[in-house]
Design a protein around this nucleic acid. Structure first.
Lengths: 215, 215
DNA sequence: CTTGTTTTTATACGACCGTATAGTTTGCGC
DNA sequence: GCGCAAACTATACGGTCGTATAAAAACAAG
């Protein structure tokens, strides 16, 4: 056929994931990535059309396997609360594993950066719909109080996953005041046991009337 | 003496505060600011030496009045817990007032931007020391449990002020999933009453043995 | 009117960025 | 060997950015 590939595309995706983790999508630099990977600048747009497409592809590579496992967890079993618990464990484990990258992306998103926003909006983020569906199932089975499932979603996410992102950001940020960083030093926040405790507590809390969510 | 000033420096600081609020410090553009203000680009570096100096000056202008009121509140009264409560109210009111700007700066800070980080580190942020001092006072008076005051600081801040920043970011972000935004629509999060409730609850919670801070 | 000082303007420099494009290398089937 | 196509290289374009600098404008004092 033609000249055999040196698989520079694979090298770029591998180093690109590291680069995205370190720099976030806002300060992501194509030229810097190519230099890190020892790859000619032209190869970037040869293999991937644009910076946005590259980042979007990276995110899909990271997101899709989790989503497959999430659907598996959400579909197996009878008890709706247990199905939700399984799904939350899958998602929480994924957030824990990729917390450095995800927290950086979250910071970018909140700062108004657009590459991540595009990925989130272009229907590639589908786990929320699955979660809401499970919550609705719980409500129909009278296991959860009635009301807007989004509010329950926010409650669960805030109690279980948000601490992972905020904690990671704070931990990795040298500019934050020392007392805030000191609390995160031991790292028990990121263990699977602690995650399960938070999930269990959140679900247990929901079988009671949903508290007023003031914060 | 010489050519009379048109006070373009004042115009720049006024429009600059708006620009900083809208764009954050990471995407702050000197050229764009000058265009918005209808001021020649050269005037920016004539009045203010650099972009970093300009932003730092803006932050001081916003921070210093609050710090003065904070010291006043922290110094008047006898009961250490009440002094702390007053100081927290001052700080919380200030965070509420400037929540749009502050939340954007927080996002920048977590994203690794350096202008805000410089301001925080160059000893211009002194309220934390005052707060820690008041906490120590409470501990010496046996009103608070012993232990690292930083941990108590984080607990209070997380329960009272962090929700303001996170809520503002989520509220202003069109890219976030709808269910998350819907919860923040009513705006009761930002009332003075809600702030006082959170402060009171946090302080009340501290007079009991400090709970394990897992999240 | 001239001199001097301050404010204001216009323009240029150098750096970085994402992207485009023309050209070169390299191996295949013929 | 030859042509072809895919992989790879080198370089350039156009843009934004913060900053620097030289010149002009505007007023007061002499």
């Amino acid at each position: 056929m033609a000249r055999p590939s040196q698989n520079l595309d694979q090298r770029l995706t591998r180093v690109g994931r590291r680069h995205l983790t370190r720099r976030g999508s806002a300060r992501f630099s194509v030229r810097e990535l190519c230099a890190e990977a020892g790859v000619n600048l032209g190869m970037f747009h040869y293999h991937f059309r644009s910076k946005a497409a590259f980042i979007s592809g990276l995110l899909e590579e990271i997101y899709n396997p989790m989503f497959a496992r999430l659907n598996l967890a959400a579909g197996s079993g009878q008890d709706p609360v247990e199905k939700l618990r399984s799904a939350l464990r899958v998602f929480g484990g994924w957030v824990t594993e990729h917390r450095v990258l995800l927290s950086r992306l979250a910071a970018d998103l909140l700062g108004g950066e657009s590459n991540v926003a595009a990925f989130i909006r272009t229907a590639e983020v589908r786990h929320i719909a699955v979660m809401v569906g499970l919550i609705l199932e719980c409500q129909r089975a009278d296991r959860f109080p009635p009301g807007h499932p989004g509010e329950i979603m926010v409650f669960i996410g805030g109690a279980t996953f948000l601490p992972l992102l905020v904690g990671t950001l704070a931990q990795n940020n040298k500019h934050l005041p020392a007392p805030i960083r000191a609390v995160l030093k031991d790292g028990t926040l990121f263990t699977e046991a602690a995650l399960s405790r938070r999930i269990d507590a959140a679900l247990r809390g929901l079988t009671l009337p949903l508290p007023k969510l003031r914060a």
